[in-house]
Amino acid sequence: MNVNFEYDDVKASNRLEIMAAEKLQKLVDKFDFIVSADVFFKKENTADPNTGLICNIRLSTPGSTLFALASHANFETSIADSVSDLNRQLEKRKAKLKMRY
């Protein structure tokens, strides 16, 4: 699977890329129909100190694209939250695929 990383107002980080890639690899191991992933890291000024570091993940699968967004005080939590959301979406997608066949 190909993973693309993009940064908006954030310095590129190998640590964040490795963490995101490891979590995404767990999804790929569980759901073999994932084609590629785009991971976006963004810093946003907010009044709430518990938000502002955003991780968006877009997964390409046959027939559709899945998307998750999380904003927390650190990127690690945002990555974990986005991957958790995608896992739920993939479970639903897999259930629909099984019902069709």
Rank of each mutant, 00 (worst) to 15 (best):
T77P: 06
S71L: 11
F41Y: 02
A73S: 13
A80V: 11
S36A: 14
M99W: 08
A70T: 02
S82R: 07
T46I: 05
I34W: 05
A47F: 09
Q89E: 15
L97D: 14
P49S: 11
T51N: 08
E44D: 13
I57F: 07
F75P: 05
E6M: 15
E17F: 01
N50Q: 15
G52M: 09
M1L: 09
G63V: 02
N4F: 08
K94T: 07
E6C: 12
K42W: 11
A21P: 04
F75T: 14
V39T: 04
K42Q: 11
G52A: 12
M1N: 10
L24E: 00
S64F: 12
L97Q: 08
R88N: 04
K96E: 09
S60P: 05
E22W: 10
F41E: 02
L69R: 12
S64G: 12
K42G: 14
R15T: 12
V28I: 08
V35M: 14
K30I: 08
L59C: 10
D81T: 15
K11F: 10
S82D: 15
S64Q: 13
A20L: 06
T46M: 10
E17P: 02
G63T: 12
V3S: 15
Q89Y: 09
L90Q: 03
I34K: 03
N50G: 13
P49D: 13
A73M: 08
A12R: 04
E17G: 01
F41D: 02
A70R: 00
A12Y: 01
K23R: 14
I57R: 00
A80R: 07
I34S: 06
S64N: 15
G63S: 04
I57C: 07
L16K: 01
A37G: 05
D9H: 13
E22H: 10
L59V: 06
N56A: 14
S64R: 09
Y7V: 10
A12C: 01
K11Q: 10
I18N: 12
D29Q: 09
L53V: 00
T65K: 12
L27S: 01
D48V: 10
F31H: 13
K43I: 07
S60G: 15
E17Q: 11
L69C: 15
L27W: 00
L27Y: 03
A21R: 11
E22N: 08
Y7K: 12
A73L: 08
S36F: 01
T77W: 00
I79A: 04
D38W: 03
D85A: 05
F40L: 04
A95N: 09
E76P: 02
R100E: 14
I79D: 03
S84R: 07
A80E: 11
V28H: 08
L90G: 03
F41I: 00
R15F: 09
D32Y: 05
F5I: 01
A80L: 07
A37F: 00
A37I: 01
F75W: 11
M1K: 10
L27A: 04
M99P: 04
